[in-house]
Structures are given as C-alpha cells and as structure tokens.
Design a binder for these strands. Structure first.
Lengths: 203, 203
DNA sequence: ACAGCCCTTGACTGACCAGTCAATCCATAA
DNA sequence: TTATGGATTGACTGGTCAGTCAAGGGCTGT
C-alpha cells in the first residue's frame, strides 16, 4: 500500500522522539548527547539528523506537541457552561493526568522548557504566556459573574494557580512528594481547594 | 595593617561572585563560559580557579549563601507570636524583597538551581526540601490552632504557597508580568490573599 | 527485472571550553 | 634591603560533542 513507506518513516520519527523523552528526562537536555538518543532509539546517529535539523528541534517538537494539546483543552473547558471552580478542576486534572500518563515527558517540558528562562523558555514565551492569558480570562469572567471575588487580579490568580500545579509536579519529579493513583486525585482536589477555597478557617 | 591582604582577597572573591551573578543571569549557567565571568569581573581567567575549585562551585556558593539566609528568616518569622497569615506575608515579603534587591541573583537561584531537577536542584535537594518542611510546619500549627482549616494537607499547602511565589518571580524574570515598586507590594498582598483567602466569592 | 529514490549508517571534522600550570608580580615582615 | 609566599596572569591541553557527509541498502513503481 502507498502509506507503508511513509508510515514506517513516521514510526521512526516517533521512535526517536520517544527515545529523546527518556534520555532528556534521565540526564537532562544539556548533559545528554545526541548519540544517547540514537542508542536509546536503536537507530544510527545520523538518522536523528535525517528527521530533525538539530538537537534543539527535537525538544521544540516535544514541547509544542504537548503544549498545543493543553491550550486546546483549556479553551475547550472554558467554553463549557460550568462554574469556574469546575473549569479549574478540569484543567488541573488534565495536567496531572498528563503527568500520570507520561511523567518523563512532563518532566522534560517543565524542567527544560517552561522553567528554563534563558534557553527554551524564552523561545516559547508566546505559547507559555498564552496559557496564562487563557487562565486569566477564566478568572476574569468568574469575577464578572460574581462567583469569584475581585480582590485578586485575574492575571495574578492565573499565575498562582498554574504555579501551584507546576510546583506539585516538581515535587513529584524531585521525589519529595508521594506519588500514586490516590495521590494524583488528592492533588487535583488540594490544588483547587487551596486556590479557590483558601487556607483561612471559615468564620 | 594585618587585614589589608586578606581583605583584598575577600574583595576579589566577592568581585568574581558578583560577576558570576550577572553572567549566569544574562546567558545562563550552561551557555556562558568561565572566561565570560573573568572578563566581567575584570580579572584573569586563572584567578577564578584560585578562588573556586570549579564553575559548579561558584553557583553552589551563590545559591547556598542566599538560601541559608532565607531558611533562617523563615525560622525567625515562625518563632514570632503572630497569626499564620502574617507569617506567610513576612516570608513572601522577604522573597519578593530579595528579588527587588538583586533580581539577577534570584533569577540565577530559581532558574539554575531550584527548578533544575537534573543538575543543581538534585544536588541541593535537602536545602530546598527544608524550606518546604518549615513552611509546612507553619501551616500545620495554624491548623492545630484553628486559624487555618484542615481541608488541605500542610505539606501540600506549603508547595502551593511557595509555587505561587516562584511563579510570580518567574513572571518578572520572563518579563510577562509588570514590575515596579507598586507591583512588588501588590504581589505580596495578592500571594497571601490568594493562598489564605482563596478566589471564591464570600457567601 | 531494474532504475530511482529515500532511508540508513557511522566515521569523521571542526569548534568549543573547563581546568592546568609555569611564570611573574608584589605586599609584607625580618 | 631582601626573602617569602600568596596573588595574578593567560597560553595551553585534553576531551567532548553537535553536526556533516559519502557510501550502502532496500522498497516501489514501471
């Protein structure tokens, strides 16, 4: 069939990307060599450069693939007619589930891109900023509707919400926070409860 | 006098550390060369190795110098007989003021150490974890005293609080969040208000 | 059957840079 | 004045690694 050849090529490309996730995650982008990725993928060194123009482009691809899906998910959630608290829960849930599904990939995205202000973070600033903007809009609409109070600027609330999520993932990545099915669900609840409910005791 | 010589040596050492802050901050730890630091400090390449065993040790020194002060400040704040909300405000205030006083240093600490899970973050995991532990204890005591509700695990609340702060600093570092005297003060208020008060509207 | 083309290989190159070291400088003390 | 030893210099070395390239392999369509 006509697609066999191109299908095989797509598979090889994917094979290299998957190997890169493991390699970047294990040793870090800077510390690992392109030959490590090739070894991990079980292909020759040169083949990596047949599919990707540079080592950088591999990480760009991994980041954009996943980040784009996340942005779409945020837009989709925001379009639903549910309370803001539920929207935030759905977004926290999506990110936590992304980690559950592929912790290595999320580690790479967070450690090497969203937190790397000097290298990849700067290159993908627009995509990262877009997430803050979308989250800010959710908060802003909730404030206008009266379900969130207006004490905190929407843009700022978005940062705090996303920051709490990223810090929890970082806790898992560093191994300072317990992991497991129950912990993942618990985390979603805690994140929303902290940001929406606050720590203060009820009068 | 007897201290002239050793004083001059201490000054040179400080000069190199200050130059490293600027250089690491501008280009990132991995992207910059030791010769950049020497140039920035106005000293010969070899002198850097007279004062520091390696490029890594320079970053270790910068991080530990500042982190130790922060941990002390957290302990000091916790020892005071004030409400937990005020304790958290004082800590957020200290970190924001650290950024105000030396944004480059805080950028280096956050970008190259506390968020670098594969390299320096792993090496300084104990010091980083200690901050979470101390913050968790503040929350725990407040919950026991009834001023914070017990819905969220203390350890988790600590992550969310610290995560919100770090995300705000990252916003400033990336240039996606407005900076200035008013913004710094505003940020302290927003952080505490979000984490303690929550976003939900009051009934 | 076979020509064409893309896939695949891995040795090689050129550049880069952390860390070394032998030589020199100079403040201090005897 | 002169000896001592830490401070200072910068050329050099050794190793690393991203990216290149020329050659071989095998699928595909005619």
């Amino acid at each position: 069939m006509a697609t066999t050849r191109s299908q095989a090529a797509a598979d090889k490309r994917r094979q290299i990307l998957d190997a890169a996730v493991i390699t970047f995650s294990d040793r870090g982008f800077h510390a690992c060599r392109v030959s490590d990725i090739a070894d991990q993928a079980g292909v020759a060194y040169g083949l990596v450069y047949h599919y990707f123009a540079s080592k950088d482009k591999i990480l760009d691809t991994l980041f954009l693939e996943r980040w784009t899906v996340m942005l779409e998910r945020i837009r989709e959630v925001d379009a639903q007619a549910v309370p803001a608290r539920e929207k935030l829960w759905a977004i926290a849930s999506f990110i936590v589930d992304s980690y559950r599904h592929d912790p290595n990939l999320m580690k790479v995205i967070i450690v090497e891109v969203t937190r790397a202000a000097n290298s990849f973070g700067a290159r993908h600033m627009n995509e990262i900023r877009e997430a803050y903007v979308l989250l800010g809009q959710i908060v802003e609409k909730a404030q206008a509707a009266g379900s969130f109070r207006s004490e905190v600027a929407p843009q700022f609330a978005a940062l705090a919400f996303y920051g709490a999520i990223e810090q929890v993932l970082t806790g898992w990545i560093f191994g300072v926070l317990a992991q497991g099915e129950a912990e993942y669900e618990q985390a979603k609840h805690y994140i929303v409860e902290t940001i929406c409910g606050g720590l203060d005791a009820r009068e």
